[in-house]
Design a protein around this nucleic acid. Structure first.
Lengths: 337, 337
DNA sequence: TTGTAGGCGTTATCAA
DNA sequence: TTGATAACGCCTACAA
């Protein structure tokens, strides 16, 4: 058995030991006020000796602040979100806040209930811009400070941090265009609003050229789904000379299955994705991708959230600059001009 | 600007609206007691109309419980930990607890301070068994319920959940032995206590055989470090015919750099790791690994933690069964007998 | 510079 | 079955 949890010292114990009032201790520890050197020394010693630290819940009752912030992500298994969490965690630590983490995929309760409950335990939330409308409404209604990621804020006067999806896709499309690819297939994830933006940007890049396009729909943005779709994408109809996936996980799955199918990448077909997850560098061929600034998004979003919580006014939508990372998987194919 | 946070309704508002006492409302919502149908209906309606939900902090002041649990991990970038968090998150959600997440790598404050502060904001913690001793002592001292992962509990009467590292390595070693490998190099991570156990288990498998061993030390258990060490491991002295890495990230790095160096895997050298991260399947050749049950460890640890918090007695150290996953990277080399 | 006292929203104890 | 009321630990006017 673990020992019973010790009854921690209270501010009153400290006050008594230091022979001052609780108000004095409170002001002292909150750094709001200076006192006589003697008094400060006595308090410091008492705190030290009793090993006192203030009770966050009791403080919270007065201030209304919990000292916690939350981030709701769609799938912790996806390195894109992992990186976001890392960035957010760093910024939260810097601000002295604890990060509560909710994997939307893992909660059994309906999203709405989860968020409602969560919103009472945090001072603010970072959530996806593609949350269902009722959930967004509830959040809005609760008045919880919120910063969105992944797309522009669905509400005026709320912050958001994201990359320009259309632009990112257009840049990738241009790379493919300039490398000589013309038969483009896109494996999208329609459930994400910005999958369509990427699709559009991709096509933009080929305006005026004689290029052909096909689109496929993934049921989930994960590697297994890429594997599942690979034969359809690669072997049905005319084989594309380049496949762009909604994200790197789908792309990795496509690549792995292409190999199993005997389709050579990039000799027969180029493959590229979005997010620039680390594992794109540790596969073969290395994966071309668009860096969507995952970690920076988490970090910037958290900084904005801290600002909102502290009542600082500021930018609303912040758009970070994405970048095409060209690797082996889209190297010029031998057969292409 | 976001709207000011609404002043939420209190239990008193509900009591007044339902024309009962706050005590009655409290008992009703906490499900501890039944009341007249009429009273219950009135309370339910008042709650509904006022959109009331109880204030976790206020409740916490009485109960001493926060409704949060914490997990401290060493690097969220490592899929092993990611999976642990996923498992823990699921179990926490099931128990109705929020998961506070701390990436030890990301906190600027010294580990000790972080954990001390964290321990006041949670009802219990899941932490690595390889935390520094002073930190463990502080935790122990605070009386916070704790469950350890990664190795046996450093304290009697504390729970832990892990796999048997020596055994896992021995199994992997036997696979290599039976496949014909004899010149084994191990890329360890000495900072982890159980790196040595894996090293030992690996050697065990070759007892009585004419096998040779070399050991290398990684400064960090990450892919970049695998890349950095690759040339030394592969090209200094006699080339090993099999390299085992402390974890899959190191192994992936080694594999990528081997390719860059023109060393063929597994034809010239086999490579294997531990953790069975998903990306071992999406690289080429696919990586042989030992599944260390990452997700299950997180889930089981959280279940134990919930038990401890609720005062349930039970098992102390739980050892999960690991499993060798043989893939291409250790396929029998042409040149080996 | 320091202290007094009331209140934050809930639960628990005890009485009705 | 229901209600009064005293904690819980801290913060913050306001007073001294």
């Amino acid at each position: 058995m673990t020992p019973p949890r010790k009854r921690a010292a209270t501010i009153r114990d400290v006050a008594r030991a230091a022979d001052v009032s609780t108000a004095t201790v409170s002001k002292y520890v909150n750094g709001g006020q200076r006192f006589t050197a003697d008094v400060e020394a006595r308090i410091a010693r008492a705190v030290q000796e009793l090993g006192w630290s203030l009770n966050p819940m009791a403080r919270g009752m007065n201030t209304g602040l919990t000292g916690n912030v939350g981030i709701v992500i769609l799938d912790i298994r996806n390195p894109h979100f992992t990186s976001m969490v890392k960035g957010a965690a760093r910024a939260a630590a810097t601000a002295g806040l604890n990060l509560i983490f909710a994997d939307a995929a893992e909660s059994k309760a309906p999203e709405l209930a989860v968020l409602k409950s969560l919103s009472r335990r945090v001072d603010g939330l970072i959530v996806s811009a593609r949350l269902p409308q009722p959930v967004l409404d509830a959040l809005f209604d609760s008045g919880t400070p919120v910063v969105f990621y992944g797309g522009p804020s669905p509400y005026p006067d709320y912050h958001s941090v994201c990359c320009d999806n259309t632009l990112a896709a257009r840049m990738l499309g241009r790379h493919l265009r300039d490398t000589g690819y013309r038969r483009i297939s896109y494996v999208g994830f329609p459930a994400a609003r910005w999958s369509a933006e990427r699709w559009r940007g991709l096509q933009d890049a080929f305006t005026g050229l004689d290029a052909s396009f096909r689109q496929f729909d993934a049921a989930a943005p994960v590697a297994e789904e890429g594997e599942r779709l690979a034969s359809t994408v690669l072997l049905s109809g005319e084989m594309p000379d380049a496949v762009v996936a909604f994200n790197d996980l789908l792309a990795l799955g496509l690549m792995a299955e292409a190999r199993a199918l005997g389709v050579r990448v990039p000799a027969q077909v180029a493959i590229a994705g979005f997010d620039n997850i680390a594992y794109g560098r540790y596969c073969s061929p290395m994966l071309t991708s668009v860096d969507m600034m995952s970690e920076a998004i988490g970090e910037v979003a958290m900084r904005h959230l801290v600002d909102v919580i502290q009542g600082v006014q500021g930018t609303q939508d912040e758009v970070l600059t994405s970048r095409v990372i060209v690797r082996e998987s889209t190297a010029r194919a031998a057969g292409n001009p």
